[in-house]
Simulated scan of single mutants.
Amino acid sequence: MECPEAKPLLKTPTAQLATNGGSQHPDKRRAGGHGPTLADEVEHLLPGGAHYGALPNAERLDAPSPEQKHSRTPNAGEDAWGPYAPAISRWERISGRAAPPATNERGRLATAFVEWMMGLAPGWVTAVPGLTRAAQLKALGNGVVPAQASGALRILLDRANVGSAGP
């Protein structure tokens, strides 16, 4: 059961982000019995996304013009991040880095945004020479979020009582 105070979080990056046939509106993905992907949410629900304002089997809503789409990155807490504004702002504070644009120049999920979400150093994957966008998304989707790995190791070490005088 979901907590009523729970704030929406963006989906976890997965390895198939660039190879699953492209994004779909999250409602259409759910109607097909699947959960939306990070690309679905960014490209359809955030201004600047390639399909922002498009609804499944419906006319486009008030989507920004191409000139407006990529004019600037939303600031923390702005309506442009929609329901994800608190999560974006919180991660900016924790990481000490401003969120990069969520979309690239074509309105698709930006690999630098995924890298930032995971808490990786800028360019950790995106500055590797010769990697295509698809290869970057696959590497990021197959990667480990350092903060999660650290937390998991702490839990495991506590359970194992490492350093204790036990047997």
Rank of each mutant, 00 (worst) to 15 (best):
H34F: 14
S95C: 08
V114T: 08
P122T: 06
T37V: 04
F113G: 02
H44A: 01
E105F: 11
T111F: 04
M117W: 15
P167R: 12
I88R: 06
V144L: 10
D40R: 02
A152G: 04
R159H: 08
R29H: 06
A147T: 07
G107R: 08
G151A: 10
L137Q: 12
N104I: 02
R93W: 07
L38G: 04
P129A: 10
P83E: 09
S23G: 14
H25A: 15
A54F: 10
G33L: 10
K28S: 14
N142I: 00
S71G: 04
Q148K: 09
P64M: 05
R106P: 00
G143K: 01
A149F: 09
G82Y: 03
L153I: 09
Y52E: 02
L109R: 04
P86E: 08
N142T: 10
R29D: 06
R159T: 01
G53P: 00
R97S: 08
P146Y: 01
L120K: 09
A99V: 01
Q68N: 04
G49M: 01
A165H: 13
A127I: 10
A135L: 13
Q136G: 11
R29M: 09
S23P: 14
A76I: 02
S71Y: 10
A127W: 11
H70G: 10
E67Y: 08
W81F: 15
A152S: 06
L120Y: 08
D62Y: 12
E78M: 04
R93D: 11
R93I: 12
D158C: 05
R30F: 05
R90A: 15
L156N: 01
R108M: 11
Q136I: 11
G77S: 07
